[in-house]
Structure formats: structure tokens, C-alpha cells
Amino acid sequence: MEDKKRNEAYNKYIKAKIPKTKPWPSLFNSFWVGGLICVIGQGINDFYLWVFPNISQQTGWSLTLITLIFIAAFLTGIGVYDQIGKFAGGGSIVPITGFSNSITSPSIEFKSEGIIYGICVKMFTIAGPVIVFGVASSMVVGLIYWIISLF
């Protein structure tokens, strides 16, 4: 009982003691880097629509995202993306490029354990939950729409 009290007091003390970083510089960095990545995406999209005027909006966006995923995977491979991430934080995690980085980085990291047990098994250690949650929630949405459509 006394231990519990002491632990609570200690946790409270630690919380007050932890150095507070100023939020504004990191918020600003993630704002402009994130915004820049989106602008690059828009540029790529406009480029595709200009080169292939006949493709649909949907196809254009798919091509844009695939291009961004490619760029991010490449930057991860040459060891640049983690440095962008260190600087920008959320700015480079939230865009689709962050998703690409979270799949490529464990693949490269665990290459030393072989192709099957290293690259393939560890590929989704970070991004796995994203796909699981995304697909599961889309099924829920689909189910709700299906039930609604019955009436």
C-alpha cells in the first residue's frame, strides 16, 4: 500500500521534472514539410493529368500516390527519409510517404535475417496495424451501407 502511494508520488514528480520542449518549432517544421509534400503530390497529379488528359480523376490520384510511395521508399533506402523524419516529425509521418517509409524501413533493417524470415515477415511490423484497422473499418462501413441498402 505504501509502495503504491510512493510510486504515485514519484510518477507525479517525474511528470513535472520531464523537460518540456517548445512545441512551436516542431509544429512549424511539420507544418511546412507536410504542406510541401502535399504540394509535390499536387504537382505530380497535375503533371499526370497534363500528360495523359484522358485518364480519370481516380486513376490520376492512384498514379500520384504510387509515385510518392516510390520516392519515399527510395529515400528510405538511401538513408535520407529518417533524417527528414527527425526534422519534421508528423510532417513526414502523416503523408502517404510515411506509410511507405514504415514498410520499407523494417524490410531493409531485417534484411540480415534473410529474405523470407527477414524482409517478408518483418515488412508489416509497423504498417500492419494500419492495413488491419483500415480494412476492418472499411468492412464495417460497407456492412452498414449494405444493411441500409436493404430497406
Binding site: T21, F31, V33, G35, C38, G91
Partner: peptide, 20 residues
């Protein structure tokens, strides 16, 4: 492009806010 920059930036900054 300004809209893209502002909204994209705000979404990412919101992510950073969650991290901090």
C-alpha cells in the same frame, strides 16, 4: 496550391501535436 499547402500542413501539424 496555397490551399493544398495550408490544409496538408495543418493535417500534418495536427499529427505532430498528437505526438508531442
Amino acid at each position: 496550391y496555397l490551399w493544398v499547402f495550408l490544409i496538408g500542413g495543418l493535417v500534418c501539424a495536427f499529427g505532430e501535436l498528437l505526438i508531442i
